[in-house]
Simulated scan of single mutants.
Amino acid sequence: MRTLEIKKNDSNQRLDKFMQKHFKTMPKSMMYMYIRKKCVKLNGKKVSGDEMLKEGDVLTFYIKDEFFEGAEEKHYEFLKAPKKLNIVYEDENILLLDKKPGVIVHPDKSYHFDSLISRVLHYLYDKGEYDPEQEQAFCPALVNRIDRNTGGIVIAAKNAESLRILNQKMKTRELEKFYLCLLHGKPKKDSDTLTGYITKNESKNKVTVHPKPVEGGKEIKTKYKILEFDGRYSLAEVELLTGRTHQIRAHMAYIGHPLVGDTKYGKNKKAPDSFKYQALYSYKLRFNFTTDAGILDYLNGKEFEVKDVPFVK
């Protein structure tokens, strides 16, 4: 028999979801078998699995020790990652990070030990703000993603309540993201809101823009404004009114002005040698809450900006 007390970061979630996160090696079918056989108790009472956990609740488990041993593993892979971060803003709830091009946000098939989330965990661990031994299910997490070869602001949530709030704000588009990009040539209009539809080829990880609705297509809206033009390249600010894979890169290429350095959508447009990655940066973030933000309400109306964008002089 083992007992666990629910802490703040583990509260406000279903019991079965908590168990899936905590007992990482336990098959889901076995988890529900333990629940059915009354091997799991919540405050001494039998459970069905859909109970919402509250801070201070006590769970009692009559299950194999091997699952606890897996959950209490003390070898932390994230400690192999560098803890170097470019921090735009930090408080007790969130981190705003300036991710540099070339860094992956989450581990992928080419992952060896370094990713942005691993760096965040290493950083918070060294600060004493994250201890896996004290957290039974929660782990600090990234709220948004940016492609490996794109730079810009990524939000990290330090606690479960902030993560829940920010995930909801992302869905309701109460976080406004602005990008800077360098375009080949200059569009006919200095500012415009482009519309269209986008489909994705999963095997090639490439999207196609269509002027009219197509099967499997998703609507896209891309708002841009030309800031500068040097006779060859345009510096543009872009606001994503919809957030689709490669939307800015594909949409600007579709109108005949691909991003400098973009080998996937730039066709035969050659970039200067100094451009190792496409010239695209998520440089500004604005919190524009229109619904209750709970413990993050103090962020409403605040705007954060990256000053050092590689392709802006």
Rank of each mutant, 00 (worst) to 15 (best):
K109D: 10
K80W: 14
I94R: 04
Y76T: 14
K127C: 07
M31E: 00
A156T: 11
K302Y: 06
K74L: 06
L183M: 12
K169Y: 10
M19E: 03
S274T: 02
G217R: 10
K302R: 05
L299D: 01
G217W: 07
K127I: 05
N43T: 12
L79H: 13
P211E: 12
I94D: 03
I220E: 06
N93V: 10
Q247M: 15
A81W: 03
N159M: 13
T172I: 15
D108Q: 00
V312M: 00
A137Y: 04
V40L: 07
K37L: 11
V47M: 11
S234K: 05
A81S: 10
V312Q: 02
L235M: 08
V260G: 02
K212S: 08
D16K: 08
K313H: 08
R249L: 14
G128T: 09
S110Y: 10
H106Q: 05
K218W: 13
A81K: 03
Y265I: 05
K223P: 08
M30N: 10
I155Y: 03
K84P: 04
F138L: 05
I63L: 07
D91T: 09
D50M: 12
K45T: 06
D108R: 00
Y283L: 07
G44E: 11
T150F: 05
L15C: 03
F229W: 12
V207R: 00
A137K: 04
T291F: 06
Q168W: 10
P101Y: 07
K100Y: 04
E228C: 09
V209W: 00
T25F: 09
K46P: 15
M170P: 07
E215T: 14
Y265R: 01
S282A: 05
K270N: 01
Q168E: 09
A157F: 13
I104R: 01
Y298W: 07
K188Y: 03
R148H: 13
E239H: 15
D192F: 07
K99R: 02
R36S: 14
P187T: 05
I63G: 00
G261S: 07
N268V: 00
L121A: 03
Y32T: 13
D50N: 13
Y281T: 06
K21D: 06
D131H: 08
E161M: 09
Y76V: 08
S162C: 13
E303Y: 03
D98C: 09
I94T: 08
K218L: 14
E176I: 14
R36V: 15
E176A: 15
Y62L: 11
V120N: 04
H122W: 05
N144K: 03
V88Y: 10
Y111H: 14
E5S: 07
R244A: 15
G70S: 13
K302I: 02
H210P: 03
